[in-house]
Simulated scan of single mutants.
Amino acid sequence: MHESLYQPLGGNEMPRFGGIATMMRLPEISDPSLLDAGFIGVPLDQGTSNRSGTRFGPRQIRSESVLLRPYNMATRAAPFDALRVADLGDVAINPYNMADAILRIEQAYSDITRAGCRPITLGGDHTIT
């Protein structure tokens, strides 16, 4: 069976300022069992006391990632040629209940790792470490 390898969308296919904002312009895939690794956003900032805002981290990281290239020119590493990587979206946290938010994060990561996918976290405050 042929496994799908996903490549970041190139600037000739869609302008870098257009399209849905996913990490590195990779497709959004909801099923982690289809991936070797997946970017997962954690829009959480309930653990901050003075400066909230890390809840916007996953969105901003994705927005800035449009400039990243699918390979490293210096090392010639091309991870997307060997690994199935995509954007898994965000954990649907509870912004009003920290205990419930943590349970939701733990459940999401359990589901991802149980499917054999390695999560790559975007955002979150220090609570999630």
Rank of each mutant, 00 (worst) to 15 (best):
V85F: 10
A21C: 10
M23V: 13
A108G: 00
L103V: 11
G116T: 04
I112T: 04
L122Q: 04
S110E: 14
D125R: 00
F17R: 01
T75H: 04
G124L: 09
A21W: 10
R76F: 01
R114L: 08
G123L: 05
Q7Y: 10
V42S: 00
R16F: 15
H2W: 08
L67T: 15
R16N: 12
M1R: 03
Q7L: 14
F56H: 10
F56G: 01
R25A: 11
I102Y: 09
T113H: 00
I93V: 15
A92E: 15
R16H: 11
R55Y: 06
I29G: 10
V85Y: 06
P32Q: 02
F56Q: 03
T129H: 09
I120W: 07
P70C: 08
Q60D: 14
N50F: 15
G123T: 09
N50Y: 15
S49I: 07
M98D: 12
Q46I: 08
A21Q: 11
V42H: 00
I29Y: 07
R55F: 07
P43V: 04
I128H: 07
Y109D: 00
R76E: 13
D36Y: 02
N12M: 07
I112D: 03
L88P: 06
Q60E: 13
A99N: 13
R25C: 11
T121I: 14
M24V: 15
G123D: 11
D45G: 01
P79K: 01
L26I: 15
G18V: 05
A115V: 07
P27M: 10
D100G: 02
M98A: 15
P32W: 02
D90G: 05
G10F: 11
I102S: 02
D87N: 05
I40G: 00
L122D: 05
T121K: 07
V85Q: 03
I105D: 03
V42G: 00
V66I: 15
M1W: 06
M73I: 14
N12E: 14
Y96M: 13
L35S: 03
L67M: 13
